[in-house]
């Protein structure tokens, strides 16, 4: 085998590959093309993850939705929660930026892969945090509904229809609806996220595992 590999080496080194040689102009054009590397994709997806949920508040319908919180009587708790969420989000953005900056194609392969995975982990933790905060919001709302003595007032548009429904029944229905909505939303967002990253990083993870196993 060694002989065969040596033979291959000899052939390989003398090889002029049968591919068209690129001209100066060809290469010059290439250097201004956009990269499609996974690092670029991680950056794009992460910026979306950090910004999209906050951009949603710019829509008027979303702001009207916020009024529900007031009617249920939980807005002051949710305000406190938002302050906490933004503080933590800023911390995550800072961490992400720091780690992202460390990624260099000039590193050795193992370090490069490790740093990419570390950067992605920051985003992963952020997403887990965000999803738990959605759940906390949902729980606060459910508690708000539970403690509210006249929940029908929160939905004036349904006043007539709700007049002959008992308060207890109404509360349970609303609490269930909020709960189910929250769980579905969280699972959906989490599912999309992990699927996206799973596909994006499958190859990298496989190669990283292989390099790491060498060290054992």
């Amino acid at each position: 085998m060694t002989d065969e590999l040596e033979l291959l080496k000899k052939d390989w080194q003398n090889k002029e590959f049968n591919v068209p040689k690129l001209s100066y102009e060809d290469i010059h054009k290439m250097i201004w093309k956009k990269s499609s590397s996974i690092v670029k994709w991680i950056l794009i997806i992460s910026i979306l993850e950090f910004s999209v949920p906050h951009l949603l508040y710019l829509f008027p319908s979303m702001r009207e939705g916020m009024e529900v919180y007031e009617k249920i009587g939980v807005s002051q708790y949710l305000f406190g929660l938002s302050v906490f969420i933004y503080t933590v989000a800023l911390y995550f953005i800072f961490q992400f930026y720091k780690r992202f900056k460390e990624i260099s194609v000039l590193d050795n392969s193992k370090n490069l892969m490790r740093k990419i995975i570390k950067t992605r982990k920051t985003v992963k933790h952020y997403v887990i945090f965000s999803l738990s905060m959605i759940m906390v919001t949902i729980i606060i709302m459910i508690i708000g509904v539970y403690l509210n003595d006249n929940i029908a007032l929160a939905f004036p548009e349904f006043k007539e229809g709700l007049a002959n429904v008992s308060q207890e029944k109404l509360k349970i229905t609303i609490m269930l609806a909020i709960g189910i909505f929250g769980v579905v939303l969280t699972l959906f967002m989490g599912g999309v996220y992990f699927l996206l990253y799973g596909l994006l990083l499958r190859k990298l993870k496989k190669n990283y595992t292989e390099l790491r196993q060498l060290e054992i």
Binding site: S36, I38, V105, D107, S109, L112, L204, N207
Partner: peptide
């Protein structure tokens, strides 16, 4: 060598 290999085994995304 380093940049080319790193791109091929780490950064290049397409299957």
């Amino acid at each position: 060598y380093r940049v080319a290999l790193n791109t091929a085994i780490t950064l290049y995304r397409k299957n």
